[in-house]
Amino acid sequence: MTGVGAVGVRRSYVEVPPRVRAWVDATLGSPVARWSDQIGGMSPGCATRLVGHDGRRAFVKAVGAELNSASPTLFRREIEVLHAIGSHALWADLVASYDDGQWVALLLEDVSGGHPDLDDDAEMEALLVATDRLVEVLGQVTVPAGPRATNLGQPGLVDAQARFRAWSTALDHLDEIPDDLVPTALRRSPARLRRLVSLLEDDETQLSHWDIRVDNLLRPAPGRIVFVDWGSGALAPAWCDPLLARFERVEEAWFDSSVQRSPTLAAAGDDLVTGFLVAFGLALAWQSTRPPADVGLPTLNEFRRTQARRALVGAARRLG
């Protein structure tokens, strides 16, 4: 059964500053009577289901700059995206947001249910159908004006094309990446890898979730998937979200046949899909070798290594 992919070290709701909890009580319209802290995701802040004295339910996530300097920026990006996309059954609606310059919090619709089991064919199929619908809906959204982020720590929507260009620099450090992360078959043809990665350039973009993984999905009922956590919201090619929705099985031949069954991915082409896996995997692998800068995120680097290894195994299989 699929487990939660990313597990950080979160603060409990009771450790959130009193001023933020007072805002929650006031916004909820009733003092919080019960709460249940959730696991999953990499934010060091809280992620908590709440119930007010009057029975009203909500979900709160809150983080402060003292926990991790970049995390409030991700929360502000999520607020920006949720304001832009409004209300829809495909995602948890934003109820209200808080920002005092140090702490940022979101009060969201509480979606019942846990994470889907993406090892289950029916639940994976539900995700793929939901993702295709998500791409269609987001393609109709007017993209917010403002700055574009070349990395997650900068304000504004993430510029996927800039990220692709940044990822490609990992090819210059291929010899420095540990052998346990890069299959030998990939090391034999660096020129081929560069050609594949170059295919990621100059594609049309639209608003995208950009972080579809089991941690960021809820299953409130059989056949229904709800997308949460928009902190990586990006301007990206329409094929990115359908590819990421399949990433849980990237190490299996199922991934390749599923790509062929997707009109969006089939139109993008096999080489482009493989190029994404190469660039994504090598970038994560290279980043994992750099001096750590993940304050408050002690498990993030091992998560990078795991995801890098999986992406590159998938790429090696596709290259034969």
Rank of each mutant, 00 (worst) to 15 (best):
L171F: 14
P178G: 06
L174N: 11
D180W: 02
A170F: 07
A170P: 06
W167G: 07
D172Q: 02
L181H: 09
S189Q: 13
R195D: 02
S189K: 13
L193M: 13
A185S: 12
E176W: 02
R192T: 05
I177L: 04
D172E: 08
D180C: 11
L193C: 03
P190G: 12
D175I: 09
A170I: 08
R195L: 00
D175K: 06
H173E: 00
T169F: 01
L171D: 10
A185P: 13
S198W: 11
L186I: 14
A166P: 05
D175C: 09
S168P: 02
S198P: 06
R195Y: 02
V197G: 04
R194P: 03
A191D: 11
L181P: 02
L186Q: 04
R194Y: 05
S189E: 13
A185V: 02
L181V: 03
V197L: 13
T169V: 14
L174Y: 10
D179N: 13
R194N: 00
P178R: 01
A170R: 08
R195Q: 05
R195E: 00
D179T: 04
R192C: 10
D180K: 09
V182R: 00
T169L: 12
S189L: 15
T184P: 05
S168F: 05
P178A: 13
L193R: 03
D172I: 09
L199Y: 04
I177R: 01
D172A: 00
D175T: 09
D179A: 15
D175E: 09
A191V: 15
A166Y: 05
L193A: 15
P190M: 14
S198H: 06
T169Q: 12
S168M: 14
A191R: 10
A191S: 14
T184S: 12
L193E: 04
D180H: 15
W167Q: 06
H173P: 03
R187D: 12
L199C: 08
L186F: 11
R192K: 07
I177P: 01
V197I: 14
L186H: 00
T184V: 12
A166D: 10
P178C: 13
L181I: 08
T184L: 09
A166K: 08
P178L: 06
